[in-house]
Design a protein around this nucleic acid. Structure first.
Lengths: 202, 202
DNA sequence: GGTATTTTGTACTGGTCGGTAAATATATAG
DNA sequence: CTATATATTTACCGACCAGTACAAAATACC
């Protein structure tokens, strides 16, 4: 779908994956509604009909950008869930988020948060999608904690939902701070405080 | 400026303060750019020329809404700073934010965060203003902690800037969670975990 | 009453939004 | 070569954006 597999007809003059990468950066920086089509076409180096032919429309392009975001900049998330203990999971989550939110090579903050935190009525479906993505991530953390509980890695009286929400607060809160210009070092300090809190809460 | 002090001419048919309150709610819900002038005029019960005559323009109206927000929904902030100890300050901050972000009588989340977290180039001044407001709040927390240090209320080796940033992360993170639908009860649980972390970090 | 002053309602402006029609350009297939 | 298929370019579409001109309406002052 994204690759240029056609052998017939005029070939594409741009790299679809590179263009998507550029679109991701713009959406990340300006949000879904703050990004205009000229913003996108300029960054991607293509014109509007090419964009529509390759990606559908603005919303579908955003969905593809989110997908890419989950695999690359937010790529610390799934591996963190696979860590052998709840503590190591929390550690990888917190420090991974601190690093990703303040990565000097990408826009600051988290696309899942700032992509469409608020919006006009037109973009409510996008906003809702991001809400569900965030809640889905938190649920995965909760389920990982519950698994740790079943494995005896975590005390039985720990409230896994509350603890997962606490971790979510750290991830989202750090992304806001990063978007406000907080340094990577400071975020790592905060992650360390939060990790200590996690340890004490278990 | 906001009151109808004129004695001459046709009197205003609406209450400026009530209209501002309505504008605040819309901005809070949809963000600065997500809010259109029809959104505003409909909620405020007035038409555009009345809005412009009373408030200047959209950006100035937003500034007035922010001012109102700081005094009312975000009114827990300054009193928290006045608490006699750093711990009590943190307690009031965390639980005040948990309550305000999930208040059933207002939009969810924090206007300072979701008013313009990302935006188009046109609204960069608004986004920047909110960034500075957030950083200003964090600085006030930091200075309050430094005062506590000077008073012997807080150990000398505590990193006040890091701790203030940690509190900022909680406030902003909880507001994201609230905007995602997290319940007031859950946020209070998280605030309790964070308060414990604050205690252990001091 | 009449006049000055302010607000109101309506209609409009130029500009930008997301999205597309139509023509041209570049490739393969025969 | 011709025919077909796809991509690119340019120009355009209706809708909406923030903001305003203008005239009618409602008050106070005289």
């Amino acid at each position: 779908m994204t690759g240029n597999t056609n052998t017939i007809g005029r070939p594409r003059a741009f790299d679809v994956d590179k263009a998507l990468q550029k679109a991701l950066e713009v959406f990340w920086e300006k949000g879904y509604e703050g990004t205009s089509l000229p913003d996108l076409t300029e960054a991607m180096g293509i014109n509007k009909p090419s964009l529509y032919a390759a990606f559908g429309n603005k919303e579908q392009l955003f969905l593809k950008a989110i997908e890419l975001y989950e695999n690359r900049p937010c790529g610390f998330f799934q591996p963190a869930l696979l860590q052998p203990t709840a503590y190591l999971m929390a550690e990888h989550m917190l420090f991974g988020a601190a690093a990703a939110s303040s990565d000097p090579n990408t826009p600051k903050g988290c696309l899942m948060v700032q992509g469409a935190l608020t919006c006009s009525d037109n973009a409510n479906s996008v906003k809702q999608m991001l809400i569900e993505k965030r809640r889905g991530g938190e649920l995965q953390v909760q389920q990982r904690l519950e698994r740790a509980q079943a494995e005896g890695d975590l005390a039985a009286d720990v409230d896994c939902a509350a603890l997962a929400c606490f971790i979510g607060v750290q991830l989202h809160g750090m992304s806001i701070q990063a978007a406000s210009g907080t340094s990577s070092e400071r975020l790592h300090q905060v992650a360390a405080i939060a990790l200590q809190a996690f340890k004490n809460a278990t």
